[in-house]
Amino acid sequence: MKAKTQEELIYLNMTMKVPYKWRTGETMGEFFRELKENGIIYANQCPTCGRHFCLPKSVCTRDHTKCTERSKWIPVGPKGTLVTYFMAEQSFLLPTTGEMLKIPFAVGIVLLDGAAVILQHQLEETDTEKIKPFMRVEAVIKPKEERKGNIYDIVHFKTIHE
């Protein structure tokens, strides 16, 4: 059999770096303001179905109703129940920073006490043996002087025993 000669193939290596701006809208703006100034996690409410959303939604995903009435907001959590989770044991490039994810990285799907929909955030615990379904967790909120009005004002969720 004739030996196959290796053909040189050209490819281009490039990096796309696209700047963007993102406005949260007034409802999430209010959520972040309350989190930053008062350290409170709020849920808003759909006037049609009565569900409490945390993170707040300006429009109900089911009823398509506007949910902007401020008097219907209630504090939820900071305790809640872990619904499910994933654990990253391999790193990935983070498109927001261009850096690699620090592993192990556990993310929990948490139903905060008083809320009707789930919230996803980092878990403090990264040992899969110690993460139990439906275990109780609590949001750890940064001290006031460190809070910036973003999702990282919640550091992570820690395991609690009640």
């Binding site: 990253a88 927001t96 993310v107 996803q120 999702i151």
Partner: peptide
């Protein structure tokens, strides 16, 4: 949503891992 979900998603596999655990 870059403000709340993007830091925690880690691609499609994050969502698929959570539904698998459930």
């Amino acid at each position: 949503d870059p403000a709340v979900d993007r830091p925690f998603l880690v691609g499609a596999i994050g969502g698929l891992a959570t539904v698998s655990v459930a």
